[in-house]
């Protein structure tokens, strides 16, 4: 059982996108996966996964108003989701010190628990990292993102959490982007994959039915890159060609839009 927190410091680098797609990639490899939205103030993991609003959430568990298993929902591809509240009112009175205990309680039922952290290194991010067995940093190839990731790594080490890997997201091959090897040497962590900037990712929200890119278009460059990350996490090589599902799967996707 691995509990992985995905943190970045800087906002909007793609943590939630990576968690949602990676969770599905791992589930497709036969792993039991739970994704937890630990971004309690700005929750959106369940939205990206195309789920309906959940009546009770992790926020209610932290307030002591609901049980842990009451807030585990079924998501796409047999993944489980523990959403946070989408409302504005629900971030008050939250006892974050309960989070590690909550995660510990559900984790044994899964192979992977993926924690989608908020931006910043506030108490909420520390709570998620303290609940994890390992921390992955998600960065964009820009100095601001790398500086924030470094601060996040330091904050993690200070509370004895374990930063173990790095995912570069939104790599566009533009001038001014910091090269892969420099990012690795600045953050001193092994690289688990480079997910390119891909318009297909943004199409998650284009259609009536919201779907992460890995489901809508498994052949997209970003989807393939996520499979590479999943493979590296599992220590195996995933046959990316197989994940697309061929012509009929493509046809079906086309008409299910």
């Amino acid at each position: 059982m691995r509990i992985i927190a995905f943190a970045s410091g800087k906002g909007g680098v793609g943590k939630t996108t990576i968690v949602a797609n990676l969770g599905i990639a791992l589930a497709r490899q036969g792993k039991k996966v739970l994704m937890v939205d630990t971004d309690l103030a700005m929750a959106n993991l369940s939205l990206i996964l195309g789920m309906e609003t959940s009546p009770i959430t992790l926020n209610d568990v932290l307030k002591g108003d609901a049980g842990v298993w009451d807030v585990v929902y079924d998501g796409p591809e047999k993944v489980s989701i523990m959403p946070a509240s989408l409302g504005l009112q629900d971030t008050q009175r939250l006892d974050l010190t309960k989070l590690p205990g909550i995660i510990k309680q559900v984790a044994p039922k899964y192979d992977f628990v993926l924690l989608d952290c908020p931006a910043g290194i506030g108490e909420d991010t520390l709570a998620a990292m303290a609940s994890s067995t390992e921390v992955f940093l998600v960065v964009n190839p820009h100095s601001l993102s790398i500086a924030d990731a470094l601060k996040t790594k330091i904050a993690a080490q200070r509370i004895n959490a374990k930063p173990v890997g790095l995912i570069i997201n939104m790599y566009a091959g533009l001038k001014g982007e910091i090269p892969e090897r420099d990012i690795i040497s600045m953050l001193e962590l092994p690289l688990y994959g480079v997910v390119p900037y891909d318009e297909e990712v943004r199409k998650t929200f284009y259609y009536k039915k919201i779907q992460p890119v890995i489901l809508r278009n498994p052949d997209a460059e970003a989807s393939k890159a996520v499979y590479v990350v999943a493979g590296k996490i599992l220590g195996i090589e995933i046959d990316i060609k197989k994940q697309g599902g061929g012509f009929f799967a493509w046809l079906k996707r086309l008409f299910s839009r």
């Binding site: 100095s143 500086a147 470094l150 601060k151 330091i154 001014g176 910091i178 420099d182 600045m186």
Partner: peptide, 11 residues
């Protein structure tokens, strides 16, 4: 941008 990289090294 050298300053930006220097800033990261400082951190």
């Amino acid at each position: 941008p050298a300053e930006q990289i220097g800033y990261i090294k400082d951190i």
